[in-house]
Design a protein around this nucleic acid. Structure first.
Lengths: 142, 142
DNA sequence: AATATATAGGCAAGAAGCTTGAGCAAGTTA
DNA sequence: TAACTTGCTCAAGCTTCTTGCCTATATATT
């Protein structure tokens, strides 16, 4: 099995597991893509353009995704503090609670991995992966 | 950056790079998904159902993808040797040459990664990833 | 052997989620 | 202040998936 295939299957399995865990915690109306958005917003929010770059999609697509998250109560659009053209997308309380649930789900999903490799090597792998692809997008589809 | 995010960005970057390399070698009418199909077929072919499981999509979707690959000359459907219901999907010569091009492109794409981590650790990472998720699907979208 | 059920595959319609194209408002440059 | 750029969004369209249904063959039951 190639590195490419093993990377992809590992990523797919992990994302699917976390997605199931998030759904089991009551958040059944969102997709993994939305989680990628949340992680971009969690620090201090972001503009639609920044979300688009993070996901590797067009600004229009990012805008639609944000629309959906607004409608479902996970995020809201605020005026941008320093640029009246832009709008700052930030997590609502519901959005924050959902990211907590996702972190919980990630811990659960990684438990079986820690049993196999141990926390040490898992962290080492993460560090190596970050060195290999520090700033890439999280494209939701191919 | 989390393990999940680093896994996904690394996989995304690698897939995008290989896809570009394959396109640069003249195969501009296929997507990464098709490459995942090729890798499943390369041994001894596979049924549509097996392709569907490999990709993590419905049988109908897999059938449509195979339709497209047949139309473009990369694969063909043959009667299955031991089950008259099933059909064996196999690579054509064009399909085989395309998988070669993909392997070339993968080597190119991995060069910069070898510069960063070295071949040893890259192979070690692959082994670890295989242990973590041996039989997962390569879902083309979330 | 006859019947019931399961499995492989595919057609058609529809939905999800992206892109392209166009346009407005606000910022930046000359 | 005029020209251009940037941030965003509306609308339309397209790609690619799913759902629902159907046929043919295989397998299990009686």
């Amino acid at each position: 099995m190639s590195l490419t295939a093993s990377l992809l299957t590992a990523a797919t399995v992990l994302v699917d597991d976390i997605h199931s865990g998030v759904a089991a915690r009551g958040y059944t109306d969102i997709r993994p893509t939305h989680g990628f958005v949340f992680s971009r917003l969690s620090e201090a929010g972001a503009t639609v353009t920044e979300v688009a770059e993070h996901l590797g999609v067009t600004r229009q697509a990012a805008s639609q995704i944000v629309d959906e998250l607004v409608a479902k109560g996970y995020v809201e659009r605020r005026p941008h503090p320093s640029d009246a053209r832009a709008r700052l997308v930030v997590l609502t309380e519901r959005g924050v609670r959902c990211t907590w649930a996702a972190e919980d789900a990630a811990v659960d999903a990684l438990e079986s991995w820690e049993d196999i490799l141990g926390e040490q090597r898992l962290l080492a792998m993460r560090d190596e992966l970050v060195r290999l692809a520090p700033n890439g997008p999280l494209r939701p589809a191919w």
